[in-house]
């Protein structure tokens, strides 16, 4: 058989047999089951638990880096690796901030309402998109009204269906930000793919990993300061060990949320508080 259809596999239903589909389904199911063995959002764990993942002899670079990061960071919250980890880490990070800062919570509710109107104006399918927005706003409003306690918030974050419905809001505003600034971002999309198609297949589709464009767009859409720490220098822009978004000088940049990037995956990490260091 000719395999020419492989290159556009992700977006086409080209000639594949029923058996192949069945096999794919089984493999997908197995991967999904493995992923679901881990919680969506772990409890805060001591950062040094990360060191245990790396062997000093077989992966000396990551082992050393984990040790180095442990000097700066006290805690890590492991996020399930299901393709949603970037969006989920930001969602959880933001919710944590809002649980402790009522002013930011109310501000974010207001900006989420603005996003609802903006998405409709951008031509997103009207009622299904507004439903995701309403659900997210309701979730925040219940926190603001004291109807949802902190523990319940984290239960929601760990319930697949609730958490993923909330997460979809983040995918939509990421897509909305790109669509609203298409002239600026379209040139970055490879192979001449139209921006709208890129947004639909790569951003709005659940379980699709966030690429660099998605990361910038979500940072801008939520108006946060994000720092990403890298385990090695191969992926960080400018060959650095970490990346500030939006671009900011290390001396003055104060991140709201910090993520740790390990190849293909993001977790939330927390800096040591000043008085507890040393």
């Amino acid at each position: 058989m000719v395999q020419e259809s492989n290159e556009n596999l992700p977006t086409s239903t080209s000639a594949i047999t029923e058996d192949e589909i069945l096999l794919q389904d089984q493999q997908m199911k197995r991967i999904e089951d493995e992923q679901k063995a881990a919680p969506l959002v772990g409890d805060k764990s001591p950062f040094f638990t990360l060191i245990g993942y790396y062997d000093e002899v077989t992966s000396p670079a990551f082992f050393a880096k984990a040790n180095e990061l442990a000097e700066t960071y006290s805690d890590i919250r492991y996020i399930r690796g299901d393709g949603n980890c970037f969006y989920r880490a930001v969602l959880v990070g933001l919710v944590e901030i809002m649980l402790n800062d009522r002013e930011k919570l109310l501000k974010f509710i207001a900006s989420s309402k603005e996003w609802t109107d903006r998405l409709v104006k951008l031509g997103f399918p009207d009622w299904t998109c507004t439903d995701f927005c309403e659900y997210f706003i309701e979730f925040l409003q219940k926190i603001a009204d004291g109807k949802t306690k902190n523990e319940a918030v984290f239960e929601n974050m760990n319930d697949d269906n609730t958490a993923n419905y909330l997460l979809m809001f983040f995918r939509l505003i990421t897509s909305g930000y790109l669509k609203g600034n298409s002239t600026e971002y379209e040139p970055f999309i490879g192979e001449g793919m139209p921006l709208a198609q890129y947004c639909e297949s790569e951003i709005e589709a659940m379980w699709k990993e966030a690429d660099h464009l998605a990361i910038i767009a979500l940072v801008k859409a939520t108006n946060i300061h994000l720092r990403i720490e890298y385990m090695d220098r191969s992926v960080a822009p400018n060959g650095g060990w970490h990346h500030n978004l939006p671009d900011g000088d290390d001396a003055t940049f104060v991140p709201d949320i910090t993520l740790l990037y390990r190849p293909g995956h993001y977790d939330l990490i927390y800096k040591k508080s000043v008085d507890s260091s040393g």
Partner: peptide, 24 residues
């Protein structure tokens, strides 16, 4: 459409989007 009535349609498989509803 397969013999058992299943439908081979991209939006019901790899091009599904959570923004689709039953009407779509």
């Amino acid at each position: 459409v397969y013999a058992d009535g299943s439908i081979c349609l991209d939006i019901l498989q790899n091009r599904w989007s959570p923004t689709y509803d039953v009407a779509a």
